[in-house]
Design a protein around this nucleic acid. Structure first.
Lengths: 227, 227
DNA sequence: CAGTATCCCTTATGATACTG
DNA sequence: CAGTATCATAAGGGATACTG
């Protein structure tokens, strides 16, 4: 932490919060991640060494608690960390309104599907296990195929075939999928246009879009285009 | 700006906002600063070169507008920049609750008085000009004496004697003054204890505390001490 | 799984001085 | 007033490999 030498509470807060990646780590913890590699899944471009360093700092600032549970390590937000939620949400709302232009490098399938897997409407899934395969034909080969394994109380994202039978196959243009997820386009619109196609038994195919709750920022009112 | 390569609006926003000093510059603009050296006054530890660089970036991101008015340069927030207010405020609220421990290096008289000068209750000042001298006996010699020049519509802070007759002299322990400003202590309390003393004609001396509105975060509910 | 350890190259930025 | 210019050093962080 480098210091601003100001009594101002905004400055005192930013001493703890303005390092690169810090807010994104808090976002992951607020979303439900609690293990080192879960946080990495939501931030795949961050190196392991850097995440370890940031987590150590967050524990030192008493925003995050580190707890060993058997052979696993569990990270969780302290009361101070939990109260960062209004900050993180207002940043997301602002970003949705004013920083929503995505470059090609922003369309990372892993980050997108990681967000998706935390926002599944488990209540309306078919009974048992449902496997959705995502194919992003234009992505780099190793980022092209993903499997989402859904049960009544879990959602797992895999970048390797988990071996189960696939129930639904979603072939998508990544930009179109992100636009649906963010509430900028609708399922009927992208399906009609062919930017996304859904394969599988008709019942499942038709049900699939309803399984995904959208991004928590999908409903944010947008800035009207200038006339 | 370095990039996170994530579609997430929180990440897209932080690409613009998480560089050191950026939020503090926005804070100054939200408080009412519009000139280069006003922003510096609120951030005296930032070098001129660095402020220039940050301002160029903020203009590039379209959060700040730079406008030449005759021979002066005027900075103002764009619509996108103005919408940062909820973020900055929630950061300040959080900082007040969870990052309020001040080290000695945080007690910078200039930053504190700069905040004070933006929060004067001009409506209840005596008519004409009122000059308040602040003395912080324990501060470094060059930060020990300050003059606050108040009129019906202006408040100026000087670190050199502006030459006017002084109406009120406030001799203060800086930590006590910051505590009053932040709402952690009351005027009666610090006056009784002698941590601050006010000199001058009795009417003015008694009126002085009411001229200062407190920090905008003075009313934030604090975290109850653990039992 | 949850990290460490190194190496090495950029960036960032503090200090100082200068300018139209 | 509103910046530039230059230098020197510190910090940041990517790549890669390794570990209990």
């Amino acid at each position: 932490m480098s210091e601003y030498s100001q009594f101002c509470p905004i400055a005192k807060a930013m001493e703890l919060l303005d390092e690169r990646w810090t807010i994104l780590i808090v976002r992951e913890l607020l979303s439900g991640s609690s293990h080192f590699n879960e946080i990495r899944s939501g931030n795949p471009k961050m190196s392991s060494a850097l995440l370890a360093k940031r987590l150590r700092a967050l524990v030192r600032y008493e925003l995050v608690d580190r707890h060993e549970d058997g052979n696993r390590v569990v990270y969780s937000l302290t009361p101070a960390g939990l109260e960062l939620r209004p900050i993180v949400e207002s940043i997301g709302i602002w970003g949705t309104r004013w920083a929503a232009d995505l470059g090609d490098q922003d369309l990372d399938p892993q980050v997108l599907l990681w967000d998706v897997h935390y926002n599944i409407d488990h209540g309306i899934l078919p009974p048992g296990r449902t496997v959705v395969q995502f194919v992003f034909p234009k992505a780099e080969p190793h980022l092209r195929n993903w499997w989402l394994v859904l049960t009544a109380d879990e959602a797992d994202i895999c970048d390797a075939d988990p071996g189960h039978d696939v129930d639904v196959t979603v072939t998508a243009d990544l930009r179109a999928f992100a636009a649906v997820w963010m509430g900028d386009r609708t399922w009927p619109n992208v399906l009609r246009e062919g930017a996304i196609s859904i394969g599988g038994p008709e019942t499942l195919r038709r049900a699939f879009p309803s399984w995904l709750k959208l991004s928590m920022f999908a409903g944010v009112p947008r800035v009207p285009a200038e006339l």
